[in-house]
Amino acid sequence: MTLEPTPSQTIGPYFGHALPHPAGGRIAPTGHPDTVTVHGRVLDGCGAPVDDALLEFWQPAPDGSRTGAPGSLRRDPVDGTAVGRDGVAFTGFGRVATGADGGYVVRTLRPGGVPYLSVCVFARGLLGNLFTRAYLSQAADPLLSSLDARRRATLIAVPERTGVHRFDVRLRGDGEHEETVFLAFR
């Protein structure tokens, strides 16, 4: 049996009271000494910041486990308010909305077994979500090695200083800047 999938539709501009959750970008357990910060901006084809995008991150735990863990968006059982992570469990999942400058920040731990974070991009004006990857190192990787240098560079989360990487998502090229590589999966 093969069922036809439900079509996707744009996330629209009004998800902000529903999807983002407190400390959604704080994937690393509180105060973890190996915390890596990944930050950047989401930009459109004119180089303008996209201030209403939602980014999601998914990754293995540092030990390489890909099972994830619940607790990314814990709720208070008494009053239902969002209380966020417990600061201990590594859920592998992050979710952040971009700010007025198109910026976002996630703090996480390096994934075990692979050099990248999986990134899913939603925004008003996109009919569906886009997948890309933020590579924290340029270790041998089948996807990176399949791309020419200019395209490959769009997937590299560039080290700025110890423990801080910059990863911009450019939804569309502007002639001068290369558009981010977006992925489809077989």
Binding site: D44, R124, G125, L126, G173, E179
Partner: peptide
């Protein structure tokens, strides 16, 4: 959708 937000490649 918004053209300026959509990949060309």
């Amino acid at each position: 959708g918004a053209l300026s937000r959509q990949p060309q490649r």
